[in-house]
Design a protein around this nucleic acid. Structure first.
Lengths: 182, 182
DNA sequence: GCGTTGGGTCAGCGTCATTGACACATCAAT
DNA sequence: ATTGATGTGTCAATGACGCTGACCCAACGC
């Protein structure tokens, strides 16, 4: 770990790539403040409804993959069954999410959003969309591409695999020329 | 937020900038997974010591601005006095942080890290440094610059101001040509 | 029929945040 | 010198979100 083997001397750019102390401290600050404010909008809406970030995540990932099983959702979120239960059960009870027995395996509970759930997710989505849109617009397309590359790099290998699996393929770059992996 | 008025049907370059549904969903995923895994390293170390992310944040910001007052720290973290107290008091008791009365205003408690606190912060720092370094290296310098611009854009105006104030000026772009506000 | 798997649930714990209320020392101004 | 505002600390209660351990049930698969 200490003294990373310098990787291969990356030609000229090395100077820029060497992570100086202050560069990381800046990254820490940016991620802390950025993530906090990124979630602030939805958080406010959720709070009014007596829900939290965890509920949003469930709505998000269920909305993204309707018919997802509980087990898959657990794997994506990386939490325990009990933790999910405390959030999922109320969502079902209050009619945001429906459970349907699996066709092949009837032990499974396939999750999907109700209309109410979709509306809710939509509302949270729109709030966040405004926010991210502003940031993207200010930063410009090149920066956005860079942002994606770095964030992807910050993910662990498992998360990266999940992300790929989670994306309905078509979604990965809809209409955009598949410019490498990025 | 309901029924975003479709914005006006866009011009040309706007196509890239218009935040399509899937683009935002991707951003949500990236931020969720990325932030989670970014904090995973320090979290593990902290857990061993019976501490949490909140402790890390205090160590980080106190280390960044030795002599910071409690009030300033509260403003940066955006939490309440009570929440900070629960984390700060143990840090002081266990000798990670020292409090010194302010010279001008003796009501103030100027916070700074002890040697033990610096060592701890250092340890967390190094762990995170490896992680971010890898992401930066894989993504390349242009991407890193883009990442910074977008993250900055995701911050609210207050956080942005705080960030600027928090940075010891020299730190903001050490050696890099100050390319506007970014 | 029996073990495994998918899912749910009870009980208890810990962290991190909240609000409201109060205490105390110090500063600053009258 | 009193008075009021400020900086900090603290008690008590609450809630969201995560965890472990233990146990249950229904359905699958052999």
């Amino acid at each position: 770990m200490p003294e990373a083997p310098e990787a291969k001397p990356v030609a000229a750019g090395r100077q820029l790539l060497f992570l100086r102390e202050e560069e990381l401290r800046l990254a820490q600050d940016l991620l802390f403040f950025g993530y906090r404010d990124f979630t602030a909008g939805p958080d406010a809406i959720l709070a009014e409804l007596g829900m939290g970030r965890a509920h949003h995540r469930v709505l998000h990932f269920v909305g993204r993959r309707p018919g997802i099983t509980v087990g898959e959702l657990l794997a994506i979120l990386g939490i325990t069954k009990q933790s999910l239960g405390r959030v999922l059960t109320p969502l079902v009870e209050e009619g945001y999410v429906v459970q349907a027995p699996g066709r092949n395996d009837r032990r499974q509970r396939l999750l999907s959003l109700t209309e109410k759930g979709e509306a809710m997710e939509r509302r949270l989505f729109e709030r966040q969309r405004e926010w991210v849109m502003r940031a993207y617009r200010e930063a410009g397309p090149v920066a956005v591409e860079g942002f994606r590359r770095v964030m992807r790099g910050l993910m662990g290998p498992e998360a990266r695999a999940q992300l790929d699996r989670a994306l309905p393929e078509a979604a990965r770059a809809p209409g955009a020329k598949p410019r490498s992996a990025a």
